[in-house]
């Protein structure tokens, strides 16, 4: 007992053979200046919140199930195509993309790029700072909002323009199919993605702000394409107002 240091950090008692220390590895660590004082016991608070969520989700689901019946059409008949033939709603964005370019580009190359980009997000933006807060900063919030507005304007415009003047049809026989179906739509898509990045570049963004732009563009565009395919495509996969579909077609019957 003689070799105990006389001045022991954290401990006022000279009889203790241990000390309380905090090892900080790869600063800034998360718990520095975050003592246990801002915490509550998980039981019962968290247990009650989870019970409350379970009851609310179940109530919403039960109410939906009591009021709306799941659709069931005639028995499957491979000889009789339905019009329109649509994929489940969450793939309608993909099916809508198929209307605007070569299937390999629209249904394979672009979705693969999007999934790989999504997987890569934490490795592109690997700065520990700025997590745990919506949009990270006021500037981040502005960037997300402006990108969302941009996507909400550009994507519907692209769908409408491409639907009215499809290069695949207009340039058929004039240029090789590869140019009309892959090169032109691919270049337009690339330009739509690069334009906001060029604007952003002038204000020296950090990695978080770059991924905020790209993810928002992807997320809002996915919503636009999904809604277009699901709500606005009627018989013949033509564009109609959802409330004005011919032949009494109702997009919600496809859920």
């Amino acid at each position: 007992m003689t070799n105990i240091p006389t001045r022991t950090p954290f401990s006022k008692s000279s009889g203790k053979t241990y000390t309380l220390v905090e090892l900080v590895h790869r600063a800034p660590a998360q718990m520095i200046d975050h003592g246990p004082e801002n915490t509550v016991f998980a039981f019962p608070v968290v247990a009650l919140l989870e019970l409350l969520l379970t009851l609310s989700v179940s109530a919403v689901l039960l109410f939906m199930s009591l009021t709306i019946n799941a659709p069931l059409e005639e028995i499957a008949n491979p000889n009789q195509t339905t019009d329109p033939a649509k994929a489940p709603w969450y793939f309608m964005g993909l099916q809508e993309m198929l209307e605007h370019g070569h299937p390999t580009l629209m249904a394979v190359v672009i979705p693969t790029i999007l999934v790989l980009f999504t997987l890569a997000i934490p490795y592109i933006d690997n700065d520990r700072q700025g997590s745990g807060r919506w949009f990270t900063s006021e500037r981040g919030k502005r960037i997300a909002r402006n990108t969302a507005i941009y996507a909400l304007l550009v994507m519907p415009a692209f769908i409408l323009l491409d639907n009215s003047f499809p290069p695949r049809e207009l340039l058929r026989g004039v240029v090789p199919d590869f140019v009309a179906q892959t090169l032109i739509p691919g270049t337009i898509m690339a330009a739509i993605v690069i334009a906001p990045l060029l604007v952003l570049r002038r204000s020296k963004p950090n990695a978080r702000e770059v991924v905020l732009t790209l993810f928002t563009l992807m997320f809002v565009s996915a919503i636009v394409f999904t809604l277009t395919g699901f709500l606005f495509r009627g018989p013949g996969f033509e564009l109609y107002w959802p409330w004005n579909m011919p032949d009494g077609y109702n997009p919600f019957m496809n859920l």
């Binding site: 659709p71 069931l72 059409e73 005639e74 499957a76 008949n77 491979p78 009789q80 649509k86 993909l94």
Partner: peptide
């Protein structure tokens, strides 16, 4: 969700899965 969509075996499921899986066929 997609695999469950086929199980009722009605026109809706059959053609949705036909459309959905034909997309996979485009991949080289």
């Amino acid at each position: 969700s997609f695999t469950g969509y086929l199980l009722p075996w009605d026109q809706l499921s059959f053609w949705a899965i036909t459309v959905g899986t034909s997309v996979a066929g485009y991949a080289p």
